[in-house]
Design a protein around this nucleic acid. Structure first.
Length: 430
RNA sequence: UCCCCGGUAGCUCAGCAGGUAGAGCGGGUGGCUGUUAACCACUUGGUCGCUGGUUCGAGUCCGGCCCGGGGAGCCA
């Protein structure tokens, strides 16, 4: 007999099949047991009727505990009362392992308790929906770039001597030398872009920031495209197209999961090109009109990002920040050297920054001077400066934070549910 | 690092005028042929975060510490 999955059950109507999974929940009514079987692809109700099975099977069904692993043999039948349209008339039942008292009940739990039991919490319907959407978002990022001429180039996780101070880097011992966990693959992607034209990396990045907010993890995943011969406008066009593609793929392939999360789908359906583009200077004006007191040159905090992103129904691209509050590799705007050719993309509905990027400084002399101005060790950038020595070209790129994107698309309040095993300032287990 | 809130049964919480601990859920037992977080009856269940103090008496008041949550700062 065939082992089938709940997601494919419609194809087997009227047939006898085998399902392998876990007991999600159970209800009984005298001569009936209703077993909710969960197999990772979905949940289906399996009905055990006393008259249909040997007595020992019926008694066994009565004793199964929540999350026990079970194998069920039975007939697939259509039933209007089922949320998925089908249920199983049980003929056989085998318990692979009888679970001990399961800590997570179908009732409410607090955040701390659930985080403590993250390894079990992953089994719940809501977490399934979120992590399936995460999987779809990552797939969409990769397929879009793969299908548009980009090459995947993996960046290293171990990096040598810190470039910009060590306070936000995780230090490790590397055969007696200090090494650090990467904060970004960007510098390596610039090298790769000079080799392959259009490249991207996708991997974990680490920040030892003592940030306790809904937007911060110490370990998070980024997609970082980098493109030779792209200027800031090309960069913004790519960011816009990529985000539109991601949202459309999720709407197309994960609509049921969005419904499970009770996401306002109409808000996502508005995400179509073109997105609004405003300059930093215009953003400051908007914030001041909203009653915040910003002076030109201030960087945006979480509150400012929230206010700005609530102003628009689509992601908003904020470009040309003051050069002074940006990293050394940012290229200055030739039209106004106080400005950097950079862009942040703020997700709507208050979700804030999901992309940061821009055009990189491509002139050797200027870059050397910037490194000195930022008091950075020239030696550490020897290889990076080579890129401006041997065939330097204008180039640009950005980093898209996966977890913040998942939080926005799923409509979640906190990024801790957007990654299977979140790493937070105060939590490294499970 | 700073500010605010919290820690009582396995879980979610109530208990505050200081007088010796309670509900719902879960677990267990029994009942019910159609349950959808099933329901009904009975039942089980506690180092009140730790520590010191005030008091005849502390879950309750005070100090210190630990842990968690929310936020800020920080945040290529």
């Amino acid at each position: 007999m065939e082992h089938v999955y709940v997601s494919d059950i419609a194809k087997y109507e009227g047939q006898e099949v085998i399902l392998k999974g876990w007991l999600y929940n159970k209800r009984s009514s005298g001569k009936l047991h209703f077993l909710q079987l969960r197999d990772g692809t979905g949940i289906i109700q399996c009905v055990v009727f006393k008259g249909d099975v040997p007595e020992e099977i019926f008694n066994l069904a009565d004793k199964i505990t929540q999350e026990s692993s079970i194998i069920i043999q039975g007939v697939v039948r259509a039933d209007k009362r089922s949320p998925i349209g089908y249920e199983i008339g049980v003929k056989g039942l085998k318990v692979v392992q009888m679970a001990e008292d399961y800590p997570i009940t179908p009732k409410e739990h607090g955040v701390a308790f659930l985080m403590e039991h993250r390894h079990l919490w992953l089994r719940s319907t809501r977490q399934h929906a979120i992590l399936r959407i995460r999987s779809e978002i990552i797939k969409a990022c990769r397929s879009y770039l793969d299908d548009n001429g980009f090459i995947l180039i993996d960046a290293p996780i171990f990096t040598p001597a810190a470039c910009e101070g060590t306070t936000t880097l995780f230090e490790t011992d590397y055969f007696g030398e200090k090494a650090y966990l990467t904060q970004s693959g960007q510098l390596y992607m610039e090298a790769a872009a000079m080799a392959f034209g259009r490249v991207y990396c996708f991997g974990p990045t680490f920040r030892a920031e003592k940030s306790k907010t809904r937007r911060h993890l110490t370990e998070f995943w980024m997609v970082e495209p980098e493109m030779a011969y792209y200027d800031l406008n090309d960069d913004m066009d790519l960011a816009e197209s990529l985000l539109e593609h991601i949202v459309k793929q999720v709407l197309k392939n994960k609509r049921r999961e969005l419904e499970t999360l009770e996401r306002d789908i109409s808000a996502l359906e508005k995400i179509e090109k073109p997105f609004p583009r405003i300059t930093y200077t215009e953003a400051i004006e908007i914030l001041n009109k909203k009653g915040m007191t910003m002076t030109w040159g201030d960087d945006f905090g979480g509150d400012e990002e929230t206010v700005l992103s609530k102003e628009f129904e689509k992601p908003v691209l904020v470009h040309r920040y003051p050069l002074q509050c940006k990293a050394f590799y940012m290229k200055a705007d030739p039209q106004d050297p106080r400005l950097a050719l950079c862009v942040d993309v703020l997700a709507p509905e208050g979700y804030g920054e999901i992309i940061g990027g821009g055009q990189r400084e491509d002139d050797l002399k200027t870059l050397e001077q910037k490194i000195r101005e930022h008091n950075l060790p020239m030696e550490a950038f020897k290889w990076y400066l080579d890129l401006r020595r041997y065939g330097s070209v204008p180039h640009a790129g950005f980093g898209l934070g996966i977890e913040r994107t998942v939080a926005w698309i799923c409509g979640l309040h906190h990024v801790r549910e957007t990654i299977p095993f979140p790493r937070l300032m105060e939590r490294i287990t499970p």
